[in-house]
Amino acid sequence: MAGLASNTSASATATAIPDAKKNEKVDYLNLPCPIPYEEIHREALTSLKPELFEGMRFDFIKGLNQKFSLSHSLSMGPSEIPSQSSEVVKIPISNYEFGANFIDPKLMLFGRVATDGRVTARVKCDLTENLALKANAQLVKEPHMSQGMIHFDYQGRDYKTQFQIGNGAYLGANYIQSLTPHLSLGGEVFWAGQPRRSGVGYAARYNTDKMVATGQVASTGLVALTYVQKVCEKVSLATDFMYNYITREATTSFGYDYILRQCRLRGKIDSNGVTSAYLEERLSMGLHFILSAELDHKRKDYKFGFGMTVGE
């Protein structure tokens, strides 16, 4: 009889646990803060948009102290140039880039100077506990092609908002709000004064421990849907659907992200028949080997690259 009572008690406890979770109420006054509006697709982009390159690349990063570091980047290989014909036209190029980084808990500065004349800079500064300033600029030799943008980010308890000012009389703003512990909705509006164009957009994101689903639509014609399934801690599968209802063009792709003990492998295949893969192999502490490949049989364009990164 004692054993029967014990089994009955254990069964009742096991039944009560799911019921307690089911009846658990959501505290809508203490919702989690969502991720920034411009990063709602970040899990899908990690798998589907690796930093592919062609040719050879070598990166060296030297830390001078805990906050300041220098970087050297050398790349050599073919570069595609615009052409009116259907064939891909490439020319060989080489480029060297010198960079300096300053990283502090409340201030981050990044600068790059390249031999092709490009100068890039990025700044992130925490003005208060909730307000941050971000700025980026790129100067090039071509007239009227330099760009600059300033962002003001404000983080509330369960929402984030951003205001943008850029060259060409560009003004923009976005807002995203958590509605439940897993669902967040947001919107954006922008005005580009130089081409005299304006637009609005809306986005939704639903995430759990095992999946992330996002949707975005904008008056510019963009419709973007993404879905990421976390198979386990080291394996993720991702897919996206991009549609432009103005040009009637649609593409979809399927990708994966596999983290092994010493390497990380990412790849995808899209509806245009383009297949790509990106491998990062950790040879030792501070030494990484990189392989990049992209095959486009339709355009007869094949890109292969290898690189090395030294330093942390």
Rank of each mutant, 00 (worst) to 15 (best):
F53S: 05
F68T: 06
S73L: 06
N65A: 05
E51R: 14
F53Y: 15
K49M: 03
A44K: 11
D59I: 10
T46R: 15
L52R: 14
R57S: 11
M56P: 00
L64M: 10
D59H: 03
E51H: 09
I61K: 14
F53E: 04
M56H: 11
S69M: 10
G55R: 09
E43T: 08
M56W: 10
K62R: 13
L52T: 13
H72I: 00
M56T: 09
K62T: 02
M56N: 02
L45H: 12
E51N: 10
G63I: 00
R57Y: 00
R57L: 05
Q66R: 14
N65L: 07
P50W: 11
D59W: 01
F58I: 13
Q66D: 14
G63Q: 11
K49Y: 08
E51L: 06
S69Y: 06
H72D: 01
S69D: 05
S47R: 07
E54F: 02
P50S: 08
P50F: 11
E43V: 01
H72Y: 14
H72S: 04
K67I: 06
H72M: 03
H72R: 02
E43A: 07
D59C: 03
K62G: 05
H72G: 04
S69V: 03
F60I: 01
T46W: 08
H72F: 14
F58V: 15
D59T: 07
L64W: 13
L52E: 10
M56R: 07
R57H: 04
S69R: 15
D59Y: 02
D59P: 00
K67R: 13
K62A: 04
G63N: 15
Q66S: 14
R57F: 01
R57N: 08
S69I: 00
Q66Y: 07
D59E: 13
L70D: 02
K62F: 08
G63D: 14
F58N: 01
L48K: 15
E43D: 15
S69E: 07
F68N: 11
L70Y: 08
T46K: 12
S69Q: 11
H72Q: 04
L48V: 13
L52G: 05
N65Y: 11
H72C: 00
G63A: 12
K49R: 15
A44F: 11
A44C: 08
L64I: 14
K49H: 10
P50Q: 09
I61A: 04
F53K: 08
F68E: 07
S69C: 08
F53C: 04
S47I: 10
G55I: 15
K49T: 07
E54N: 12
L52D: 10
F58G: 06
S69T: 10
I61C: 00
L52A: 06
G55L: 07
L52Q: 09
Q66A: 12
S71V: 06
R57C: 00
K62L: 02
K49N: 09
P50I: 03
S73V: 03
L52V: 11
